[in-house]
Design a protein around this nucleic acid. Sequence first.
DNA 1: CAGGTAGATGAATCCTACA
DNA 2: CTGTAGGATTCATCTACCT
Lengths: 369, 369
Amino acid sequence: MAGTAVAGTLDGVLDSIIAGDCIEVMRRLPAASVDLVFADPPYNLQLKGELHRPDNSRVEGVTEAWDRFAGFADYDRFTRAWLAEVRRILKPHGAIWVIGSYHNIFRVGAALQDAGFWILNDVIWRKANPMPNFRGKRFTNAHETLIWASREEGARYTFHYEALKALNDGVQMRSDWLLPICTGHERIKDADGQKAHPTQKPEALLHRVILATTNPGDVVLDPFFGTGTTGAVARMLGRHFIGIEREPAYRRIAEERIARVRPFEAESITVQGSKRAEPRVAFGTLVERGLLRPGEELWSLGGRHKAKVRADGTLVGRDVTGSIHQVGAHLEGAPSCNGWTYWHFRRDGCLIPIDVLRQQIRAEMAATH
Amino acid sequence: MAGTAVAGTLDGVLDSIIAGDCIEVMRRLPAASVDLVFADPPYNLQLKGELHRPDNSRVEGVTEAWDRFAGFADYDRFTRAWLAEVRRILKPHGAIWVIGSYHNIFRVGAALQDAGFWILNDVIWRKANPMPNFRGKRFTNAHETLIWASREEGARYTFHYEALKALNDGVQMRSDWLLPICTGHERIKDADGQKAHPTQKPEALLHRVILATTNPGDVVLDPFFGTGTTGAVARMLGRHFIGIEREPAYRRIAEERIARVRPFEAESITVQGSKRAEPRVAFGTLVERGLLRPGEELWSLGGRHKAKVRADGTLVGRDVTGSIHQVGAHLEGAPSCNGWTYWHFRRDGCLIPIDVLRQQIRAEMAATH
DNA sequence: CAGGTAGATGAATCCTACA
DNA sequence: CTGTAGGATTCATCTACCT
């Protein structure tokens, strides 16, 4: 399946994985020959020591040599070099997607703009099940960023607006996508049962990208092919792919994986819409949005108890502080308490359950789903 | 309310709006004097076919290609200049938030890193009610990006982890925040009923930023103050603010707006505390005070291991002697161990964590304080 | 087989006071 | 400054195994 580059045409490399460094390989590919590039470059994570979960198990970080750079300047040189080759081999109406995290995406985005690409959207992959922040020192890093750009300003590009709208229950697809990370059977393991690649992307992500921004028969090139998610999904969806990958182990896995793919089957499969029953609303949200004021008093069901709202969404009652549920339970001497129906706020002399405010927020959220 | 900068201290500018260009104004402010900077810089770039310089003057009479290059270079110079001043006036343990869209955020992020700031998170503001993409040519641009960065790698920074967790109904706050855009009564209109500022940010967004990353009494500076959302929320939450704004019309609106703000009472802005902040209690204290007797046996979590208390507050286990943490870690073969939750003592046939005794000591300490 | 529980794991820039 | 040691810290999901 490994192919050889041929000047002028893509004969011999279509639907194959080319061995080698992506910059050198792309140099041998003909100009203006590729419809879409999907790139998942090294993130330059700069991990220092070890990290342990609260249960003392060790977190397996990305320690591979391919993610090590001397510094930002080194990383920038690398980025600008591969982007220049991408721009050369892209057709005039072609486009690029790049995925990254805060470690690298700002540098990639600036380099894209400097190279003359024209950003069409940045898209947020919201991870349904991200790894938590174990030490409680930052926000859960729960997303990654994709940039979608055309070859230059004003260039035509492919975008299947209606298909994406259909995929999104009939409303316009937004720039934030909720998708689970790649786990379970989809995650490729090696002979030892260890993950074969540290950063395998979910097929659902590539499904959406390729469906939205290519036509059947188009050529999709991935310069950091890894275990071949891009190739597998391209093949499923009836697109051609070209993979470039340095590591023989990754190439072998990708080849076997793609050989098992049955094209067109995916098109008949309805997409997975992860529907949540009732979106959870934090009580703190009511405070943040000004529906309740910090310092405002809430009355219990029956009016026997009072508590004061704090800015972080906790309550202060007599001798007790905590969530609306905790404070309610404590004041009632009950094992548990539904704070949403227990607590009431006063408006125009009437006591109104705070659950009314939750319904209001849910209505807004439903509009965005 | 407009203040005058004073070398060495912030006297005279605290809780005021300074007129002028933010770079020049910051130059007159003392170094290492500000706890937090929140910046909503101009996006600047090629909106509706017009090109603006950072000072908002129109760029005219240049070719498009030259324009674009000049545009980015100009914007970068401007960005790096104001970031350099921010870095100078920030306290060593201070931090910065910047908000932007794909037009500018990649350049800002790269400039932050180049200036030596250390990115802690990028945070996605998911707009509950974004403007749809009317032409159906792209994804609905439904988010903006914020970058949170400390002054340099390894610097301490303020983060009220527990408060944010409380605000999010007891689970860790993620990096994607769903909040409505600024509309309705919150949106400030001018005499004509037109919106007074094109990009007024919602107070809920600032509420979360300021609550999470400052302490009451801290100084929050906003170099692109606009109609003063940062100042209004800072005042509500018992923080000081410094605004910098060029446009007299915006300054006037902001002053009136902030004058109307009623700060929340002090009790309501104290947030859920962290265990880290509680006074340290030595295990030996429990022995000294007779809560545990020398020679008494402790059982591990799960009951598999035993150890004996010594008079000096160390433990003796199988083949090991040391602190409650060291002995626990050794017996479990773990890199570390919290002895307070690991070890249990026996009372009336029940195993009780020794942490209960620590709570008892802390309560006594609080009462006598 | 259904149902419940325990264990594993994911692109991570993940501590800090005190000697 | 560095080194040492106290002790604080996790969510959603999938697999394996047990009753």
